[in-house]
């Protein structure tokens, strides 16, 4: 099932990936082939098979409620593209 250019644009938007118009046909072709390839799964009978989210059959471990972290803001914000007064800065958020 080939993906249309619009579908590619829509997926790219959902994933917030900027893709140039010129690259859209190539992605449409690649993704269509990948989706065709994985569509083989339809041929497997899974009517009585439980879904498997995880390789291990374990349950979640719980942490004690203790504060173990101290502020390392300056260290962590060294990697920030833009920070000021302890805040990470981004283009204006409009609500």
């Amino acid at each position: 099932m080939p993906l249309s250019p619009d579908e590619v644009r829509n997926i790219a938007h959902l994933a917030r990936l900027g893709i140039s118009e010129g690259d859209i046909p190539r992605y449409a072709d690649n993704l269509s082939r990948i989706l065709d390839f994985v569509a083989q799964l339809d041929d497997a009978d899974t009517s009585r098979v439980p879904p498997m989210a995880h390789p291990l059959d374990m349950s979640q471990r719980l942490r004690e409620d203790l504060v173990s972290e101290t502020s390392q803001r300056e260290l962590y914000q060294k990697n920030a593209p833009q920070a000021e007064a302890g805040l990470y800065l981004v283009p204006k958020v409009i609500e």
Binding site: L41, D42, A44, T46, V49, P50, P51, M52
Partner: peptide
């Protein structure tokens, strides 16, 4: 069709 199906084939 895709993700849930793949979780099941993963079981297989």
């Amino acid at each position: 069709a895709y993700y849930l199906k793949a979780q099941k084939t993963r079981s297989l």
